[in-house]
Amino acid sequence: MYSDLKIVTGSANPDLAKAICDHLGCQLTPTLATTFSDGELRIEIGDNVRGDDVFVVQPTCSPNVNRNLVQLCLMLDALKRASAGRITAVIPYYGYARQDRKVSPRAPISAKTVADFISVSGADRVVTIDLHAGQIQGFFNCPVDNLYAAPVMLEPLRQIANDNIVIVSPDAGGVERARSYAKRLNAPLAIVDKRRDKPNQAQAMHVIGDVEGKSAIIVDDIIDTAGTLCAAADVLLKYGATEIIACATHPVMSGPAIDRINATESLKRVIVTDTIPLGDKKDRCPKIQVVSVAALMAKTIHNIHTGSSVSVLFV
């Protein structure tokens, strides 16, 4: 058995880490995370962690994915060298997950490289939420718990659920995810046929399934530039949907995303989680509703620490 439970965080999403601590009834372990004048990162754990069960909460997200990734690796290394009993990397949003295979000659498999960084730095276990590609779990040589945000996302959706809704996958790759939501909400499923010509550029073509006269709920894992989302909303409107709501676990919201969502009149609401901090983006877009995964992550951390089952949370 390990000694005390310790929660460590960097600068990526400290609010989520504090919320997790509130649910666990503990305090954040003080950590120095600053930058030297030449841009190098400085990390120092401010408390004794020898023999402790330490969880590092650090999404590798924007606005500086690479800095947050290096911060995570340096914190893992610092804890390993401080003789922590077990080190778990809690990565609510796993950056580089969309680069999980070679899509062109002489291209890296970046998701695998990042997994190697994290493993070599000292992670004994990894916890994440809604990996873009589930097979990324196999890139690690340690246990990986890929949680689902569905239990959290379904709460606001059940408030609007009725006999006249349809769950929509914005592309063929998200059908399994959308089907799980449709099953839980006892709703039919539709798919938007999407053609992508270039990265971050998508054109929705037509809808497979019946959406006419229904409230359409688009389910996705990531909203990046919102091109796919807004194109899907527009095509659903053309096919007769009366109301369009979107939900996605990870609000990357890069580039023109906020402007696109605001300009898409057919899109009435966008429900996201706090795996990535939105900052002032939420104020700039009144359509966004944020639900927290803090309680889900706190339960996971508690179960791992106490040796209880984590699979009970995969509902």
Rank of each mutant, 00 (worst) to 15 (best):
L154A: 12
L79V: 03
K287L: 02
T264K: 10
P256N: 09
I301Q: 10
K238S: 12
T242V: 12
E44W: 06
I223T: 13
L185V: 11
I258P: 04
G134E: 14
G10P: 05
I165C: 11
A97W: 07
P256Y: 08
V211M: 06
D280L: 08
P277E: 15
R284Q: 15
G39C: 01
L236M: 07
Q289I: 14
T31C: 12
V56K: 07
M75A: 01
T35H: 11
G39V: 05
I160P: 00
S83Y: 03
P30M: 02
I218H: 02
I91K: 12
A246D: 08
P151C: 11
K281S: 05
D47Q: 14
D47V: 06
D124C: 04
G10H: 08
A182I: 10
T273I: 05
Q135M: 13
F140G: 07
T128E: 03
D53L: 04
L189A: 01
V70A: 03
V103R: 10
I218K: 05
A111D: 09
A294T: 08
V126A: 02
A182P: 08
T31L: 09
M297W: 00
N303R: 15
D47F: 00
I261N: 08
A178L: 05
G307Y: 11
C247T: 15
V211C: 04
I91C: 06
C142L: 11
A232T: 15
A89G: 11
P170K: 05
A17M: 03
K112V: 02
T35S: 14
P14D: 09
R179F: 00
G10A: 07
A241E: 05
T249W: 10
G46T: 09
T306P: 01
I271K: 09
T60I: 15
S37D: 11
V90A: 05
V310S: 09
P105V: 04
T225I: 01
S11R: 14
D100A: 15
P30Y: 02
D22W: 04
S254T: 12
Y239A: 13
P188Q: 09
D280W: 03
L189Y: 05
G307F: 10
L16W: 04
I118Q: 13
N164Y: 02
D38M: 01
V291T: 14
R67P: 01
A115N: 06
Q137W: 00
V272G: 09
V290D: 07
I258V: 15
E243P: 00
L154T: 14
L5T: 14
G134I: 11
T273W: 06
I276M: 04
L296D: 06
R81C: 02
R98Q: 08
T228C: 02
N141W: 01
L185K: 14
A115W: 07
G85V: 10
G279L: 13
P251S: 07
A84V: 02
G209R: 10
P277S: 12
P14Q: 08
P286H: 12
D130T: 10
T242N: 13
V235W: 09
F314E: 11
C21N: 09
V192G: 04
I261T: 08
P251Q: 10
V166R: 11
L41P: 01
I208P: 00
M253H: 10
C73P: 05
V144T: 07
V235R: 11
I276L: 03
M253G: 00
G95C: 13
K282Q: 15
L278F: 04
S119T: 15
I191H: 03
G39Q: 09
F314M: 13
S83E: 06
D15L: 06
L157H: 12
H206V: 00
